[in-house]
Amino acid sequence: MGIVADVFKALADPTRRTILDELTECTGQTLFELCGRLTTRHGLASSRQAISQHLDVLEAAGLVETRREGRYKFHYLDTGPLEEIAVRWLDRPGAPQTGETDTTSGTTHDTGTTSDTGTTGK
């Protein structure tokens, strides 16, 4: 419960989402590399300290793992907490099944929540 709340808090910030985007492209980055990518590719002129604090939040939520290898510290993406969210709301009877699209299955029509194929913009 607490973890999931942390995940949403972590994901609520656009800079933190951009950090996850860059780690998705290449996991295992030093703080220096991450800061360079954020500055040059996204125009995010945050200080190194600010990025470090964002990484702390992501790490507390379990989305980033920091590993010390030799004398360096690398940051790795961990999508585990996102899978927990998927299991909680998506991976249950009546929800769109992972691995098959919901366009043909008739299992979603009764949930009254999300069906992607139904009328979306009322």
Binding site: T30, L31, F32, E33, R68, Y72, K73
Partner: peptide
């Protein structure tokens, strides 16, 4: 040590 930990050249 401090600079290298953060990957700073």
């Amino acid at each position: 040590d401090a600079l290298i930990a953060d990957g700073i050249p």
